[in-house]
Structures are given as C-alpha cells and as structure tokens.
Simulated assay, not measured.
Amino acid sequence: MNIIIDAMGGDNAPKEILLGAAAAVREYGVQITAVGRRRDIEACARENGIDMAGITVADASETIEMCDEPTAAIRGKKDSSMVVGLRMLAAGEGDAFVSAGSTGALLAGATLIVKRLRGVKRPAIGTVIPGAKQPYLLLDSGANVECRPEMLSAFATMGSVYMEKVMGRANPSVGLVNNGAEETKGTPAYVEAHRLLKYNKNIRFAGNVEPKDVPQGNVDVVVCDGFTGNVILKLTEGVAKMLVGEIKNVFMADLKSKLAYLMVKGGMKDFKKKLDADEHGGALMMGVTKPVIKAHGSSNAKAFKNAVRQAKLCVESGAVESMREKLAAVAQTEEAGA
C-alpha cells in the first residue's frame, strides 16, 4: 500500500511530517511517497537523522500557504505539494493522500482534482472526537457553513459507513444536532433533514441530539452543518484543555495533593490520553472518490503517524466504495419518496 503525503503542508513541515511518515512505515508496513521540494526534504532528513527507508520523494517546487485563497491556490499553484499529491492520487499512483496543510485548499483540491462521489453536493469533514462513553464521529466539522437537508442525509450515510468499516462499530447510530429532541425542533431545514434521516434505510437514526448530550458519546455519528460542527469541535477542544489544566492545578497545589496524584497517576494518564486529539490524527474528507485525510495543521510526528494510520484503515476497509454504494441506495429511496 502506498500513501501519498504532503511533506510541505502544516505548521511543523517538513520535519514532523517526515518523522511521522518514517514511524508509519515502521509500524504499519506502508510505503510512503512524500511530495515537496526534494532538496528541502532530503536536507531535513539528513539534519534530523530521519530514516527514509520506505519513503520515496516526488519533487514539487511550490507550497500552498495557510493564507492563500483556497480555490485560487489550487488553480494557480500547479506545482505545489498538495496539487501534485492529489493529482498522483487521482491518477492511481497511490492509495490515499494525507495533508496537514490548508483545510480550504485541501477541500477545494479534493473536489476539483479527485472529484466527488455521485450523490454528494459537497464533501464534509468527519472528525473523531473523544466522548464519555466512546469516541463519536462529528460531521460536518467545518467544510460547509450552510447545508441543505439532503446534504445532511448524505453526511449521515457516509458517517455511518465510516464508523462501521473504519472504527469497527456494528450497526452505528446516527443523531442530528438540534436544540431539542422533538421532531419539530430547529429551523425548517433541520426539520426536513430529520424527516429524511428518519426514512433513510441505510442508517440507524436515533433522532435529534441536544448539544449537552453530544459529549456523552451515546450516538456513534453526530450530524450537523459545518458551522455548528466547527463550533462544537473547537468548544470541545477548549473545554478539554481547560479540564486538564485545572485538574493539574488541583494536584500541584501542595504536598498532600502531589502525594495524592501519585496514587491516581495511572488513571490520570489514561484520562489525558482519552482527550488527546493526536491519537486519531486525521479527519477523512467524506464524499471524495478516494481517501483524502486532513491532519491537524499543528500536527506533530505522533499525530501525523496516526493520520497515515487512518488512511491505511480507510483503504483496507474499502470505506469509500461502501459509501458509493450506500449513497446510490439513498438516492433511489429519495427519488421514490419524491
């Protein structure tokens, strides 16, 4: 299996990207094609003692910056590491693509170059988030500020496939974020989305889920528009950091507290790991014809390694092909209902 990576994308590129790629080669047995300025990649590897066994380099002279306008960058920077990598993926020169670069540019590039699955108006970003009961998939978590009801139905279908195929959840449940549990709650678009989800035979719809219940992880897939999802994502990240910091302050207050910490050190380590976004590494661009993974812009080696792992799991599970089949079935059902 060959995973194509954007070696120049992200705040810590290329060093952390290459370190993560090298770790992925060792631990997961994948081959890596690192796309970027060859001289910079090779120099970084030499200076940091990075083992490049299993990693080949594809030269690309340009880099898309976070400040670049997404669509203009994809169309204008033809020899950027992101565009070259996506073209390689579309041409069948690799099985998946991973980038920690600009989210907007990656979304535009995946849509324009790799193309959308039939039945998908716009791809969504699916992010796995820690929950009290279990991690859950949030989508859309930032790609589409406004969504029509049929888009939310497609998100639910794709998210359900992802949780089953990639995360190993049997018969995953789907919840629609809303300000109340009743079917009539929310905007007209969300009321209609509830109706479509209710009659979507390709998912197990659990109804509306209120924001206060989302972190519990009672449902496997949480569906919403990208604006709402991004707010949930960033609020969750902020609260997690606050909790870890406040708990640390409690244990570091005095000698007795420090001694108490030694007694629960193992449990605290597990708690911190549970809240660590680096454990999941990346988010799948759902609705694209081949696996495209968005790693966090500030990814370190551990996070990027796990993003490659996500890519590997997506390829091995055949998640994209399953999404294609399920979306076709949904389209037939909606046409019959119309």
Rank of each mutant, 00 (worst) to 15 (best):
T236K: 02
V231A: 11
N208M: 04
V222S: 07
V231W: 01
E210H: 06
K198Q: 14
G226F: 04
D225S: 08
N202Y: 10
N230E: 02
Y199R: 13
V231P: 13
G217K: 12
T236I: 03
K234P: 03
Q216C: 12
L235W: 01
V221K: 04
K201C: 10
V221Q: 01
V214K: 07
V222D: 08
E210V: 13
P211F: 13
I232K: 05
I203G: 00
K212D: 14
T228E: 10
K201N: 13
E237F: 05
L197P: 04
E210G: 12
V221T: 00
N218P: 02
L233E: 00
D225K: 08
A206H: 05
G217I: 07
G226W: 06
K198W: 06
G226E: 03
D213K: 14
R204L: 03
R204K: 14
F205W: 06
K212C: 11
L235T: 15
N200S: 00
F205Q: 03
L197Y: 03
Q216W: 11
I232Q: 04
F205E: 00
K212A: 15
E237H: 04
D213H: 14
D220M: 12
V223F: 11
K198G: 05
V231R: 02
T236A: 15
T236D: 05
L233I: 10
N218W: 09
G229D: 00
V221D: 01
E237A: 01
K198I: 03
K212S: 14
C224H: 05
D225C: 12
P211E: 08
N202V: 09
L197G: 01
P215H: 10
V219G: 04
I203V: 14
P215S: 14
R204W: 00
R204G: 01
A206F: 09
C224P: 04
P215E: 13
D213S: 13
V221A: 00
D225I: 09
L235K: 00
T228P: 08
G207K: 03
Y199W: 10
R204D: 06
G217V: 07
D225V: 09
G217P: 14
V219I: 08
